[in-house]
Design a protein around this nucleic acid. Structure first.
Lengths: 119, 119
DNA sequence: CGAACAGTTGCAAAAGTGATTGACTGATGA
DNA sequence: TCATCAGTCAATCACTTTTGCAACTGTTCG
């Protein structure tokens, strides 16, 4: 999966139409976007990070400490999560505080976990 | 993310404990599993395939035709989806019919789409 | 201003992933 | 049994993604 640099949807995905033949629920574009979100969630490190943010707002250093990870790595992950609008942030003095963008993400993550627990 | 060959959970993920310090919701193992599921869903081709199966059972050739894709490619994807128990199948004569394993998946996919549409 | 702290960015190496092709297996039916 | 159809497997190649480190930016405070 190639992550888009920013929120610029690729128009070239309209070149062929794979829908409509069998009552496909998923439009081409929706598939693309949903797949991107899923693949961003599809990494244990990022998922752990999101788990931390479920009920609190934390700055990068706190996150890195809590996850026992180094700062640049955490910052990279946050950048990706930011680009998919999964997390949001605000700067306060020297610190940048991150939080989950909305409850939708929590829903998604919990759904995924629920399915994981089934097996 | 490396996909596990089969449903054999890796015990080596218990070597270190990254939890408990800040009320982390997600256990190490749950994270791993959920991340695997997410990353399997994190591909537009697989997502389209799942879209096809939402209300029907189809054999591999039918899927390949509907998606305008070649048989081996579809079979590979199905194998992966199978390994994560996202789809289920039965053999009938020469044909292998696939279906979604349970409603949970539909939930997950729809959640992902819902978030995608937000932006 | 300049030192120190908090984060971010860039880059190269390493690891992982997906598409493709050809060979293989299993079932059917003449 | 042999030919054929349906599907799977395995290996390779090109391409992405992740990671670790060093350099850089921005902010505070003496």
């Amino acid at each position: 999966m190639k992550y888009p640099e920013d929120h610029t949807p690729d128009p070239s995905c309209e070149t062929e139409d794979h829908q409509g033949q069998l009552g496909n629920l998923l439009s081409e574009e929706a598939c693309q976007q949903a797949a991107t979100i899923f693949s961003v969630l599809g990494d244990p490190n990022r998922l752990r990070l999101l788990g931390l943010l479920v009920n609190q707002e934390l700055c990068v250093t706190e996150i890195a400490d809590a996850l026992n990870d180094n700062l640049p790595a955490v910052s990279q992950r946050l950048k990706l999560l930011r680009s998919e609008r999964i997390v949001n942030y605000r700067r306060q003095g020297k610190h940048v505080y991150y939080r989950l963008d909305d409850d939708h993400i929590v829903q998604l993550v919990q759904n995924g976990l629920a399915h994981a627990e089934h097996h």
